[in-house]
Each structure stands twice: as C-alpha cells, then as structure tokens.
Amino acid sequence: MTVGDPAADVLRDRYDVLLLDLDGTVYAGAEAIPGARDALVVDGGPRLFYVTNNASRSPAHVAGHLNELGFPATEFEVVTSSQSAARLLAQRIPAGSAVLVVGTDALADEIELVGLRSVRSYDDAPVAVVQGHSPDTGWRILAEATLAIRAGAYWVASNVDTTLPTERGLCLGNGSMVAALRAATDRAPDVAGKPARPLMDDAVRRSSADRPLVIGDRIDTDIAGANNAGLDSLLVLSGVSTAADLLVAQPSERPTYLADTLAALDETPEALRIAPHHDVTAQVEDEVLWIAAGDDVDECVVLRAGLAAAWEAPGITDVRGRGPVGAAVADQLSGRAHGRRD
C-alpha cells in the first residue's frame, strides 16, 4: 500500500506527510512522550515534518534534540514559527531594515537570514518588532518593544500560545508575554504561528505534501490551524487540550480524528472519527448529556460518541454517566477527572 492512498485501511497510510506539533505531542520538555517513537518511526510510513510554534530554538537545535530522543529529523524537516515570522517581515518592510527582537538569538538569526537587521533597543530606530518565546524575556526588552510599537513599528508575534507544556507541567507561553504588550500598547500583532495560516502554509510548501495530516495536542492552535488551512487533523490527548475543552470547542477547533496517543496511527480512520458508536448510548435530556457503555468499551470510543452527541446539542449544562465507563468519561468531559491539566 502506497502512503497517501485515501482508501487505505490504516490512518497513517492515508497521508503522505505527517505535520507534527512538538511540545505536548512528540515530547514534553526534555522527555519524549511515551510511545511516540514507536508510533512515528515506521518503515515505509509517511514522511515526518515537525511544525512548532516555539520560536526559542533554531531548526538545527530542534532537529538535534529530536535525534537525541530517537526521532529521525533534519534541519530541513523542522518548520518553526520564527521562520514564518521572518518571512512575514521580509514581505512587509525593506531589506536591511532594523527589527527589534523580543526573543532568543535563534529568532534574531532568522531575521538576519531574510536580509533584515536585528536590534535590541528602541534607540536603533526599529521599523518592526518581532516577538517569540524566550525564558529570559523580562521588563527591559518588553519596554523597548512597547516604545517601538507605540511609535508605529509593525509588530509580528511568532505565536500566541498562552501556555507551554514542559516536563514539570504547563508554564506561561509567548502569548502571555504578547498579552502584556497588547495591554501596554493597545495594539495587536500579526501572528505567524498556529492557528494563523503562515506557519502551516510554509510547512505544506516545504514538505511538498499532497495529503498532509496535522497532528497536535491543542485545539486552539494545532487543530484550529489545520482547519484554517483546510487540512485533516488528529488531536492526541497527551498535552494541553482535554476532553472538557473539546466539549465546548467551537467548530473551528474540532479535529477530524481523536485519540489518546499516537499509537492510533495504526487504527482505522473511521474508528477515530468523532461520531456515534453502536456500543455507546449518548443522548441529551434537559440540557444534560447522559453517557452509557459496557465495561469492556474503551474510554476513548465512549468519549468520541459523547462528543458527537454534545456537538449536535449546544447548551449542555452538565454531563452524567451510567456505569463505570460512562461515569469516567462523563468526569473527563465535565473536567472532574483526576489530573486534569488546567
């Protein structure tokens, strides 16, 4: 079976390229997500491209980290929001223009690579500001950016993720720093990363994909980005977004497929769609979603059927389950499940 065959029996074989998010999907900080290597490193499978909103590291650095964790990756196969941000700037301002960089040296390098000049001070008369995640961002550089933006500089944010998954849990992301500048300037940036289209378009273009599948852990970035670009998507529940988030997801944030882990790539596409299931009863009564299933039914199967019913009946105020599995999934959907990642 050739990869990219729309009639293939297994999900991975229906697509010629997997456009993979990193944080929360492939790894969490310094550690690989359990089972990710076995699910992705498959002979004869679709090509892997890594598409990340995190602008703090260079593509070469990211590829090296992936290699250390056992994933095949080259610098060319890593597409970052810093590259897309640099492209947006190069299309908007003249070559050689000064760009104030709020972020790491890796982001500054991408600015230099497109023929612009990276600076760190408002006194250098920047005509644009670019902002990406850096763990060292502080008041002083945000103040320089505030002055530039208030003076009329064009502002591009690599991404607006409010949180960032790490091995210790969720920490503040670039979007939280962007929010500080928005409050200080009463301006909003153009956004390069997901869910905006520039990064996804760059990934499709570079990979020469005919049938790409976007895989990620966030409905507001990975899945919304896929939908904005008209691409199929798989949400894995290994990172940020939870079942409770999916319950109230807008249509623009709803994935094509849903699974607990990347192992689902070896399942049938039909089984992974959010749809009613013959082994699950899911119905809405007086704004309450009731879910029931036998004890031998997988919780993710029940979750997909429950979401299908919920999305057909907006305005649900509570979720209740009948039986142990139904109750467990109801707790997930209502946010009562132990260990929910708030």
Rank of each mutant, 00 (worst) to 15 (best):
G132K: 01
D342G: 14
A128I: 01
R37F: 07
L142Q: 02
D16Y: 01
V297L: 04
A108G: 11
V102M: 07
S233F: 00
P269A: 01
D9P: 03
W139A: 13
D186E: 15
G96S: 10
S121D: 13
D298W: 01
L170I: 11
R12W: 04
S97E: 13
A226W: 00
R254I: 05
L66H: 04
V302A: 06
N53W: 03
A259N: 07
I111P: 00
P72S: 07
L19M: 10
R211H: 01
R182V: 15
R117K: 14
L48N: 00
A32W: 10
P195I: 06
G45W: 00
A293Q: 05
D186M: 13
V240G: 01
V302H: 02
S134Q: 11
A192L: 11
F71D: 00
G239E: 02
R57A: 11
V236M: 05
E285K: 14
S252A: 15
A275Q: 14
A98S: 15
I149A: 07
R322S: 14
I316A: 10
E68G: 13
P126Y: 04
D342I: 14
R206Q: 14
A224H: 07
V127T: 15
W155C: 03
G44N: 02
G115S: 12
A264L: 06
S207A: 11
L235S: 05
R87I: 14
A264I: 01
E75R: 04
T317R: 14
A244H: 12
L246N: 05
I223C: 02
H278L: 10
W311R: 12
L172H: 09
L246H: 06
D217Q: 07
D266T: 03
S58N: 04
A86Q: 08
A184S: 13
V17F: 00
P198L: 05
D295C: 09
L147H: 14
Y122I: 08
A271N: 14
E112H: 11
H65Y: 12
S56P: 11
D331V: 05
G152L: 08
A180M: 12
A313K: 14
V160T: 15
L18P: 00
D202W: 04
I149N: 06
L48F: 03
S238P: 04
S134V: 06
L40E: 02
A106Q: 08
L265C: 04
V280N: 09
S158R: 03
A308G: 10
I111D: 01
A30D: 15
G132R: 01
A36K: 02
T25R: 07
L147Y: 12
S97R: 08
L272D: 08
A85H: 07
A292M: 08
P198E: 09
P269E: 00
G175T: 09
T162P: 06
A143M: 11
R187G: 11
P34D: 09
A337F: 06
L40T: 03
V297R: 03
T80N: 05
H61C: 09
K194H: 10
L147I: 15
R182A: 15
S58E: 01
A153D: 11
A226K: 00
G239P: 01
A209Q: 05
D186R: 13
L164D: 07
D220R: 12
Q332T: 06
N174F: 04
V248P: 06
E287Q: 15
T2S: 11
S97D: 13
A28H: 10
R120K: 12
